[in-house]
Amino acid sequence: MRTIVVGTRQSALALTQTNQVIDELKELSRQNGIECEFELRKIVTKGDRILDVTLSKVGGKGLFVKEIEQAMMDKEIDIAVHSMKDMPFELPEGLMVGAVPKRQDPRDVLITKGEKALDELPQGALVGTSSLRRSSQLQHSRPDLRIQPVRGNIDSRLRKLESEGFDAIVLAAAGMHRIGWQDRISAYVPPEVCVPAVGQGALCIECRADDEFVLNLLSKIQDDDTALAVRAERSFLGRLNGGCQVPLGAYATVERTGGGTELSLTAMVGSPDGAELLKETLRGSDPEALGREAAEKLIARGADRILAEAYESGQIE
């Protein structure tokens, strides 16, 4: 019997979503007569260790995955369960995305005092988020908002809503749903107002490219529509050489008709202060081509200048 060692970060959310994937794999293994058992391995990443500065100031890509990927290359673990939005575009040689399960809600959400929506927050409200993508779009929609960085896992950020005087904090809907705290959500922010991060709401099950046993098992939890959408979003990310700390977002949906499969992709790049916000919405059938086309259109409108200025000013490192 094969023992599959599963690597994950040690936050409550990471452990919850990893155990959900393991439970699904166990059931599918039983149904398909695949003999295996699972062992969980917790790994601390750079992004977990450095909590006193925003992600944009930490610098580098793969802040939440590099140490886990190294453990996989060293064959200390066999698979890893990541949040897709944490994944850099380029993976280390020998590793691959083995499966993309069905996506959870991709939207951002507000956790507020008094169950307020974005347009109901008081003038000059203090909003906590460590994401330049979120702050850019929120300040573009509401220039009066005061944005202050807030880091940590979900429960520590929720505590800071009370302890540090925030009127609202912004989190990913998927995390709140997976951990079972959806009743704490005050309002969902529509993608039209705040384009989600690349891959937000989706999971990435990463493995070694030569592990046929694991690849066969992971194929059972692949969701083709989610995988297509994520491919388009990540193609956009790759063309702009971005990461989770950069003020850009992309969200794709898939429509299957009698005539085939079509994707709709909305992509954005914004200045960290929200003064400039560029968006494009395109449709097409080739996910990689669609992502690249969206990036090229935004570059033609000044996206590369916006990102370069953010790096030069020290807002991104």
Rank of each mutant, 00 (worst) to 15 (best):
I205H: 05
G259R: 14
A250T: 03
I154M: 06
Q182I: 14
P196E: 03
V214W: 01
G243P: 00
T261R: 13
I169N: 02
Q182P: 11
G175C: 08
G242C: 00
K220G: 06
E255Y: 15
S235P: 09
V189M: 09
S235R: 06
A197W: 01
T226A: 06
P196Y: 01
L215I: 11
L217S: 04
H177Y: 13
L171W: 05
T226S: 07
D225E: 11
V230A: 12
T261P: 11
C204I: 05
V189T: 07
R208H: 08
G165K: 00
D225T: 07
C204H: 10
D225G: 08
R234F: 08
Y188D: 08
D224S: 13
R142C: 10
V230Y: 09
G258Y: 15
L145A: 07
V254W: 07
S136L: 06
L171F: 06
D210E: 11
S163H: 13
T253H: 08
E164G: 02
M176Q: 09
I169Y: 03
A227E: 08
P247H: 09
S163V: 12
E162G: 13
I185S: 05
G199M: 04
A209H: 15
L237D: 05
Y188F: 12
R231F: 11
E262P: 12
Q182N: 15
D155G: 14
F236H: 03
A173P: 03
I179K: 02
D211V: 09
T257K: 14
V189E: 03
R239V: 11
R256K: 12
G242P: 01
L217R: 02
I154S: 04
I154Y: 02
N241L: 11
D183K: 12
D210T: 08
G165C: 06
S135L: 12
P196A: 01
C204T: 11
D210C: 08
F166I: 07
D223C: 00
L263G: 06
P143G: 12
C244V: 14
H140Q: 13
S136W: 06
I185Y: 03
R256L: 07
Y251E: 04
I185C: 05
R157M: 11
S186E: 11
C207I: 04
F213V: 08
A227T: 10
E212V: 15
G175Y: 05
V214K: 01
G243Q: 01
I154V: 06
G175L: 05
F166K: 00
F213E: 11
A173Q: 05
S186V: 09
K160H: 05
G152H: 02
V214S: 04
N216Y: 14
R231T: 15
A232S: 07
S186Q: 12
I147Q: 07
T257Y: 14
V195I: 12
